[in-house]
């Protein structure tokens, strides 16, 4: 147990926590995206899906507490690492350039910024949908929440669509570096698999982001 605390408190252990929580959150993103695109095919099916997901309270609260725990851990460790890393270079360079030969990008160097904006987005997103107004409807003579109506209502304003798309784009950049980085942090990026991991994580990232982005744009321009 003491060993375990020391492990997770070391700089490598903190990065492993980031990688594990980040990857699990990525897994959640995939499921969330797959669930959401149902709305494009049938708002009724989407309402039913949402009803099924939320009617088992034990499942619902376990999942919510788990996700909240992952997010809090990810954020606290992110802050701890960022502060630690700043302290490691108290005097900045007057002139510092990237070699241009590495994986470094504007988004890999600003994970805490993209992360901060994602956090702001998540809070507004939860206020809109999780804790937002519940419109009710009757489907197959059962009264259930018309969450599709909330979603469609949300994306009638161009400004809301843009905010959503920008947030998802930043999330995309966050996990574009993050997912590949997580394989390295966990010691899994064996040279033999490096290329495959890189390609697979890019496919994952672009696939998930595209799924999320299509929804508001489709609703705004085409409607469901």
């Amino acid at each position: 147990m003491r060993n375990c605390c020391r492990f997770f408190n070391s700089s490598i252990g903190l990065k492993i926590t980031m990688a594990l929580t980040g990857m699990l959150l990525c897994g959640f993103l995939l499921l969330h995206m797959l669930g959401n695109v149902i709305i494009l095919f049938s708002p009724e099916a989407y309402n039913l899906y949402s009803f099924k997901l939320t009617s088992n309270k034990i499942f619902l609260y376990t999942a919510e507490v788990g996700l909240l725990g992952l997010a809090i851990l990810h954020i606290l460790v992110a802050i701890k690492l960022s502060l630690h890393n700043r302290r490691s270079r108290p005097e900045r360079y007057q002139n510092k350039k990237n070699s241009g030969l590495s994986r470094r990008t504007w988004y890999s160097s600003n994970m805490i910024i993209t992360g901060g904006i994602i956090l702001y987005f998540i809070v507004t997103h939860l206020l809109d949908f999780r804790f937002g107004e519940e419109i009710m409807t009757v489907q197959n003579s059962v009264t259930i929440r018309d969450v599709a109506a909330s979603v469609i209502g949300e994306f009638q304003e161009m400004g809301d669509v843009i905010f959503y798309v920008v947030a998802i784009t930043l999330l995309m950049f966050h996990i574009l570096h993050g997912l590949r980085s997580a394989f390295a942090s966990l010691g899994l990026e064996y040279p033999r698999y490096e290329k495959s991991f890189n390609v697979l994580s890019k496919l994952f990232v672009f696939g998930v982001s595209a799924g999320f982005i299509v929804i508001p744009i489709w609703i705004y321009f085409v409607g469901v």
């Binding site: 700089s11 490598i12 990065k15 890393n85 270079r89 070699s99 890999s108 160097s109 980085s181 942090s185």
Partner: peptide, 19 residues
């Protein structure tokens, strides 16, 4: 452990070091 005592930072996996 010594690396941490010396106040080096953590790795963000950007590989600027190798470059």
């Amino acid at each position: 452990a010594q690396m941490e005592r010396e106040q080096f930072g953590a790795c963000t996996n950007e590989a600027e070091c190798s470059a």
